[in-house]
Simulated assay, not measured.
Amino acid sequence: MAGRLQAVVRARRHRRDAQFPRSIDRALFDLGNHAGTATGYIVYVSGDQARSIWPLLANRHQGRTPEGDGTLDKRPALPGFTLPAGQRPRAVLRVTAGSEHVTSPALVERLDHTDQSTTKIQERKLATGVFLMEGTTSTFILCNLPQQYTGSSCYARAGEKYTRWASTSAEEQAETWYSHTATEISVLHLPDSHTPLIYGLAAARLCDHALHFNYRTRYPAPIHLGIQMDKDHWEYRRTVDADPEAEI
């Protein structure tokens, strides 16, 4: 009985997993009709939460080509790929910010080319830029620096040179320690005539558009989130929406 129940649970879960990408594609179809096929749209997918839903999100399937109907191993390869080619997303990016899948930067080296034959390497303790992952052409690393590190408190940079276990100060050990993290941006689909760099930089730039604080977000935040400011401060609009409850 227990084995039969587990089989039923797995079958139901499989049906839900099979239906979920179709539901997403339906929503993307409606979005495409709203945005217009000439404008197009870009889809950012969480690499932490959705790796098992679309095959091409998994590292082991990187480099494989979907079938003509947008499937890979009889599953939708990426979000929007069950739609006709002209209605699919212009680009699909996997953005991974979880520490379980992205290693933390340990050392930053800057290459200074003093002349054509001499290269000087300078070691640095931090970085906030976007870097192309070695050996790839479409995967980028956005280095994230905690706000704590830029603070002026005594222990703001605790962890810069040694770990908590090597500290001999009880006060320092009780503080929040510095952690240099990273966001991985992988361009999985894009037009043939475009370069992955422009999409990687766009995703990194959107991570800098935080809505409620002055630092980076974990995932690209669409710029149109600024509509909230418009709703909160409508008095600064050039035109003001009519109040439906106002007396005529």
Rank of each mutant, 00 (worst) to 15 (best):
D112R: 03
G80F: 10
P105Q: 04
T103M: 12
I121D: 03
I121A: 11
T103W: 07
K120F: 02
T96W: 01
R90H: 04
L78N: 08
I121H: 09
R90G: 02
Q116V: 01
G80C: 11
V95E: 02
P105I: 07
D112A: 02
S117P: 00
L93P: 06
A77L: 09
R88G: 11
P76M: 04
R110K: 05
P105W: 09
Q87G: 05
S104R: 15
P79T: 14
T118K: 04
G80E: 12
S99K: 15
L111Q: 08
D112C: 01
L111M: 06
E109M: 09
T96Y: 01
G80R: 07
K120I: 08
E109D: 06
L93T: 02
E100W: 05
R110T: 10
L93W: 06
P105D: 02
L83S: 12
L83P: 12
A106S: 08
G86M: 10
D115S: 08
A97S: 10
T103C: 11
V102S: 03
L111R: 07
I121Y: 03
A106N: 08
S117G: 03
H113S: 12
P89Q: 07
S117T: 08
V108I: 08
F81D: 08
L78H: 08
E109K: 12
T96A: 04
E100I: 04
H101N: 09
T114C: 00
T118W: 00
Q87C: 09
P76L: 03
T96R: 02
L107T: 10
R94K: 15
G86K: 15
R88V: 03
P84W: 13
P84A: 15
A77R: 14
E100P: 00
D112N: 04
V108A: 06
T114Q: 01
P89V: 06
D112I: 03
S99E: 13
A85M: 06
T118D: 05
E109A: 10
P89S: 09
G80L: 07
E109H: 10
R110V: 12
A97V: 00
E109G: 04
T82V: 13
E109P: 01
G86N: 15
T119P: 01
V108C: 08
Q87W: 07
H101V: 04
P79W: 15
P89R: 05
